[in-house]
Design a protein around this nucleic acid. Sequence first.
DNA 1: ATGGTAGAGGATCTA
Length: 256
Amino acid sequence: MKLATWNVNSLRVRLPHVLDWLAKYQPDVLCLQETKLEDKNFPIDEIHAAGYLTSISGQKTYNGVAILSKEPGKNAVAAIPHFVDEQKRVLALTFGNLRVICAYIPNGQEVGSEKYKYKLGWLQAFTDWIHDEMVAYPDLALFGDFNVAPDDRDVYDPKACEGQVLVSVAEREAFQKLISLGLSDSFRLFKQPEKSFSWWDYRMQAFRRNMGLRIDHVLLSASLSKRCLSCFIDKETRKLDRPSDHAPVIVELANQ
DNA sequence: ATGGTAGAGGATCTA
């Protein structure tokens, strides 16, 4: 079973890339972030034609998440319970015993800003929710743009980025609290190339210079970690015309 | 000193 996550930074712009990518990789599940579309504008027909069902939680201009899947999911949840948030950032869906969660964690903009405080509060509420989800669903896979580079290995220049947003101690601690629920960073279950990143700024020719961060992750519960066969970042997508600034991350799970 | 690019929407805001 193949599952993936991709921050597409506007599905309207990126739909051709997404359709090509689905045709090439044929994942069972693809989690999308930053669709930036109201649900009524979601390109359901085009995605159906590609052989995928859609589950969506969108809004205009910012945010928006979706799960594309070959099989129908159930038990959809599109908000963190007991947490007031106008921003559409989460979507959970169950396939058989597998609980899939698609998340777009806040960026935080700048350390100490209001958006940064929102990010840390959001992560606390999110972690509490994931705890409960893991109790209900032992086979849980969490996909998304976490907007946190967990380790200095995940940063193109750790010294230059030290203390900055996406890298700061508080953000990394929040990420580790999430991991401490019993999740594994699937990418680090395997030997990986040095300087592997999932996001490169559009500015300063960052991709050409590999000035990136690894902020898109697939986190797996213990039962799924045992079944995980591979995890890789498809940075080829970043070389396309009008690319997303993020690359997809793909995991393969052995069948039970 | 605070660039630079992309997307949305139609001036800035977000990333």
